[in-house]
Design a binder for these strands. Structure first.
Lengths: 340, 340
DNA sequence: TCTGGCACTCTAACGCCGGGAGTGCCGGAA
DNA sequence: TTCCGGCACTCCCGGCGTTAGAGTGCCAGA
């Protein structure tokens, strides 16, 4: 593409991002950036329209960049201001560094994304199920209950309250723990089930009830689950493009149902890394052509993987939002890595 | 109030609940319920307006019940259909009974409320912080890490990964556990802190690091927190009264910020029990005069207390919604009581 | 005490019109 | 060849007046 064309496309996009309104040739000329008359600009704009970079809502309404146009801008024309990252990083670090737990951290990251961008922030986390169990311990809780503490190979801890064998002393429990460890540590779930069953059948331990309870756990352990935090949807409604109730409804439904968003998240997960932008119809969310989504993967310790980002209007300032998402993802990764 | 007046007020409310539109005298007369001419109905309606039960948006627009009118309807006129409860109870029970955990249960209750009423379902839960610790156990995890499992007096289990004392055998850990139990079980947090400090100072145990780690936990344990689930906001937007973006914004903001809603929840918590209705301006949520909130308390085991309900349009069918909320609250209570 | 009738009021919907913004194209100038 | 000023054209948007419809209040008669 010719230099002049790129230049003008850039100006159209910039003007559009600011106001959300179609931009006409006169506005660009008056603005003085280009040093060209409206007429010349018109010629180029007509050309750009033919190329699919611009579109006009109707005859006398100026031009609006198409998804392709915005894509070209983001990929080629946009200059990411990298020294904004200094102060940005401080802010993000300040808000995230003292989060008291994993969920609190992710929640804060969501809020941080929302408050920095003024759009809807979104954090998705998937906790991988464990493969094998490392260790199992019985902790007496009361005269009727004992707590089974199971440590898995991904460092996760599962608790299960089960019935205490009658008239069992602490020493006996301790002994049972040891035996269970000999029997089960290093086993995957399937093996655990088989061995427990076998043990129950052979009735070597006179603690059937306890084994049965454990078996019940092995049949349905609380597996690693996925979770999603969203915040700041309210702010989105401030944008004039959401004056139409239809768009709002689609947006809210999409956020609530999460399935469609999951599809995007999956795409980002498979990507190696970095920030990925979905502009307008690129994300294929129905009725949300006016919405863009900016996502980045983050990585915690081995068993945690996730994606975070923002949902905003198509006309967002990508050069500002992308570093924010990038920076937040990096910090979340960092914080997660240090924890657990 | 006279019989006829009550009768007509009831009819106006019923008609209004169905359509959300102002109702005129002719409509009521045509409907045939009353056996009166429009003119007579008009007289009564004028009287009801003077009493503050009805209001007219403008001269030629029929009447709409005021908050007072709806309140009178709900308190006095409304007949709750109690044999709807049969099938209702089955539905609720079916969806809630096999929830795999507390949070899953509450999330499902939210969804159930939303799907039964087609409004926004909302569940609020507050977990009381524990008072004393019942028991503490050290579970070896790896050569460097040991897991402290702390069981509190409310039956809750807290885990904390801490550094393992160098060259400690399992037997030694077990011994340390026992000593810690002697030292700490039955203590509240303050005492735990003091005793740990004392122990560290006297250096009787050669496991300073471990004690320091524990102290760090005692300084900031993961305290009982409160949480709120909301779902089905999207459905609310289907209602014609949400055609105005302003109302939507207020609603979304209220749901997101939760503070205002918390105020309502508090009111319901202090109530003894049963379903409580906030009609229109009664809940004092700004800009949400068209919204009603129906809440009920539920009760779990000793350390869990909460409130659930729905947020819907002012013109909801209270006689249908109130049993739903009631029934859900009862089932959540029941399910929670059986668990943990 | 109820009812039919009548005059009155207010809104929502419709069609119309003019101003404004922007375009495409053409012919002339650098 | 490239750029620019000018001109005719198109289309949207907001304001205006009109009208149909819905509902009311009140009065007089059964």
């Amino acid at each position: 593409m010719k230099d002049r064309h790129e230049h003008i496309l850039g100006e159209v996009v910039r003007a559009y991002l600011g106001t959300g309104q179609p931009v006409g040739s006169r506005k660009l000329a008056d603005q003085g950036e280009l040093g060209l008359s409206p007429a010349s600009i018109r010629n180029v704009m007509a050309e750009l329209e033919r190329q699919g970079m611009l579109a006009s809502p109707h005859t006398s309404a100026g031009r609006v960049p198409t998804d392709t146009g915005l894509r070209y801008f983001v990929d080629t024309l946009m200059a990411v201001d990298s020294n904004i990252n200094q102060t940005l990083e401080q802010k993000v670090a300040g808000h995230l560094s003292d989060a008291p737990g994993r969920n609190a951290l992710l929640k804060r990251a969501t809020d941080e994304l929302a408050s920095l961008t003024h759009f809807a922030g979104m954090v998705w986390v998937r906790e991988q199920g464990f493969d094998r169990i490392n260790r199992i311990e019985l902790v007496p809780v009361s005269s009727e209950k004992v707590l089974a503490v199971i440590v898995t190979d991904v460092g996760e801890v599962q608790n299960r309250l089960i019935a205490r064998p009658e008239e069992s002393s602490e020493a006996q429990l301790h002994e049972i723990s040891q035996r269970l460890n000999e029997l089960l540590s290093g086993c995957n779930l399937e093996e655990v089930r088989v061995r427990l069953q076998h043990e129950m059948d052979s009735d070597r331990l006179k603690v059937r009830h306890l084994l049965e309870d454990l078996k019940r756990w092995a049949d349905a352990p609380t597996e690693g689950q996925s979770d999603m935090f969203v915040s700041g949807q309210g702010q989105l409604l401030e944008m004039p493009e959401f004056a139409v109730v239809d768009t709002i409804r689609s947006l809210m439904t999409a956020i609530e149902e999460k399935e469609q968003l999951l599809h995007l998240v999956k795409q980002v997960e498979s990507e190696e890394s970095g920030v990925k932008v979905f502009i307008g119809s690129e994300h294929a969310l129905v009725n949300m052509e006016q919405i863009s989504v900016v996502l980045s993967r983050y990585e915690g310790p081995s068993n945690i993987v996730g994606t975070l980002g923002v949902i905003g209007p198509r006309r967002m300032h990508y050069e500002r939002v992308m570093p924010i998402v990038d920076c937040t993802a990096k910090w979340v990764s960092k914080m997660l890595g240090g924890k657990l």
